[in-house]
Design a protein around this nucleic acid. Structure first.
Length: 545
DNA sequence: CCCAAAGGCCAC
DNA sequence: AAACGTGGCCTTTGGG
């Protein structure tokens, strides 16, 4: 049975600059250009390429070769290590070169007595054996194939880049900050504001970038603050507040997304961040360099489609609460979100009075709020949506006890650290003294908030992966010819995508984005009637979405 | 000189 | 005093 399943698999091993490709009854040793030719040729049969996507695929994309399906050995390995339903003795293979962050032998850093790295083929076989032994094999296969498709999409998005207009960004910076200063010098607008701040606080040498100096100067001027955070300063009535808040806003723009950022990250009209698939414990993506996952709304005006092209910007509305409704099979909550804004539906249900209350209460339930407005409203939601709230409560209790929790498709939490394990024991220890107990309870609650959020954030990440994976295939089928002429993904952020498309196909892209969301909902929740509506906009610039 | 922690703010 | 989850990345600060 295993061998039958592998017929359409081609395993690619990268060994010292060469590539070994192994199929059911073939084994080829290729140089890089040989690999490009082979993949281009064999892709017609739609094989599943078994490889380390990040290490191999960028080279293929650079040569204009795109593949449809993959099995990412590194991602699958990390997933299976903590997956639901995997027998304990198969959970932890000895560390080797397939582990994240593992060091290559040619760095001279591999321990001299380490076993030689197993081949990709061996690792793949091991993974299939683990799946065969798991009672959650179906869900885990879906998760691995979706995450592997995500890895393909991540490499493709980096290759394509997010369209970025340098001149628009420069104009925006000039309007906000004034002329570009020499390196290490404040731009004119910041220098002016710094002068006003110093005058208002009678502190002629103050550096407003230093929280320590700023706190001291504020206190001397009679402003009693615990921090210099904008949120706290907004509550203060003093002439320094206005220029100081303006300074903070502009200083952030200057340091995080100013001229220096543009020079470092925008090339040939594209911003090319490096996505780290599965880089977050919950399965969300992280990113390295350029702050790709925190592009401020302030600079999104510089993201502009090419001439004759459009951006289709789509985000899932209230994704996490909807995912929770599906996870918990909470029909009342699913009903609240049917055909309307979920928070409006919660108000209509009578649970809370306002949309803002519904939102803060719902987020409070997902994050484990115990105080404030969120904490106060959670019990009201629990009354109306007992199944949904019971699910997150149960995840929190499991975490407090030091247990693992899993997402719908089986991604597991990393094991608790020593402190959390000790805390879980101390909380039930009748002899523990009061101070120890208090500290232990706080730690256990920390872990509980993590596991509470993990199940929902992680399952939402799985929905988003399925959405992205299905959309990627639909977009490919929508166009023809070279990659650069077809609609393609250019950005992904947790529950949001941007597609860059020829204007003539924009409406069809918008339809496919919707269709892919429906597919993702079915893949995760089958026939359970929970909706995943999208906000979709066809625009020329991101800031207009 | 490098490095890590702290404070802060951006995104979801 | 802490308080509600996941991250990245900037500057300052203080240590070696």
């Amino acid at each position: 049975m295993s061998s039958e399943r592998r017929v359409d698999h081609l395993v690619v091993d990268a060994v010292e600059g060469r590539f070994v490709v192994a199929g059911p009854d073939e084994r080829l040793d290729l140089d890089p250009s040989g690999l490009v030719d082979l993949v281009a040729r064999r892709e017609a049969d739609r094989p599943r390429w078994v490889w380390d996507t990040g290490g191999v695929y960028p080279h293929l994309l650079a040569a204009g070769v795109r593949v449809e399906r993959a099995w990412d050995l590194r991602l699958a390995r990390a997933l299976l290590r903590r997956a639901a339903g995997v027998p304990a003795d198969l959970r932890d293979p000895p560390p080797d070169a397939w582990d994240e962050g593992a060091l290559q032998a040619d760095d001279g850093l591999l321990p001299f007595d380490a076993a030689p790295p197993p081949s990709a083929r061996q690792e793949h076989e091991r993974q299939l054996r683990v799946l065969d032994a798991s009672d959650r094999a179906g869900a885990l296969r879906l998760l691995i194939t979706a995450e592997s498709a995500g890895a393909l999409a991540a490499a493709e998005m980096r290759a394509a880049g997010l369209p970025w207009r340098r001149e628009v960004h420069e104009r925006l910076l000039a309007e906000a900050l004034g002329a570009r200063p020499a390196p290490g010098v404040r731009p004119p607008a910041l220098e002016d504001l710094a002068g006003r701040i110093r005058a208002a606080l009678a502190a002629p040498t103050l550096n407003p970038d230093s929280p320590v100096e700023l706190t001291r100067a504020l206190r001397r001027a009679g402003v009693q603050v615990d921090s210099t955070r904008a949120h706290e300063l907004r509550e203060v009535d003093h002439p320094v507040v206005e220029p100081l808040l303006a300074y903070k806003k502009l200083a952030r723009l200057h340091t995080a997304n100013g001229w220096h950022w543009m020079d470092a990250w925008v090339r040939d009209g594209r911003f090319r961040p490096e996505y780290v698939v599965g880089g977050v414990v919950t399965g969300r993506w992280s990113a390295r360099g350029g702050g790709a996952l925190q592009l401020p709304k302030q600079v999104r005006g510089a993201v502009v489609a090419d001439e004759g092209w459009r951006l289709v910007v789509a985000d899932a509305a209230q994704l996490e609460p909807r995912v929770l409704a599906g996870l918990a099979q909470d029909r009342a909550m699913a009903e609240a979100g049917r055909g309307r804004d979920l928070y409006d539906g919660i108000v209509a249900s009578g649970a809370v009075a306002t949309r803002a209350g519904a939102k803060v209460g719902m987020l409070g339930a997902l994050y484990g709020a115990t105080s404030g407005e969120g904490g106060r409203l959670v019990p009201r939601l629990a009354q109306r949506f007992p199944r949904a709230l019971a699910l997150v409560e149960s995840a929190a209790r499991q975490g407090e006890r030091g247990e693992a929790v899993h997402t719908l498709l089986g991604r597991g939490t990393p094991p608790p650290g020593d402190a959390h394990r000790a805390a879980a024991r101390a909380v039930v220890d009748l002899d523990a003294d009061e101070a120890v107990l208090r500290r232990a309870r706080a730690l256990a609650r920390d872990r509980g908030r993590f596991t509470r959020n993990f199940v929902v954030q992680g399952t939402a990440a799985e929905w988003a992966l399925c959405w992205l994976a299905d959309l990627r295939q639909r977009l490919w089928r929508l166009g023809d010819g070279a990659v650069e002429r077809r609609p393609h993904l250019v950005y992904f952020l947790h529950d949001e995508v941007i597609v860059h498309t020829p204007a003539s196909l924009a409406d069809q892209v918008a339809e496919q984005v919707q269709a892919a969301a429906a597919t993702a909902g079915r893949l995760l929740f089958d026939r359970f009637p929970v909706d995943f509506p999208l906000d979709v906009a066809v625009v020329e610039r991101y800031s207009d979405a």
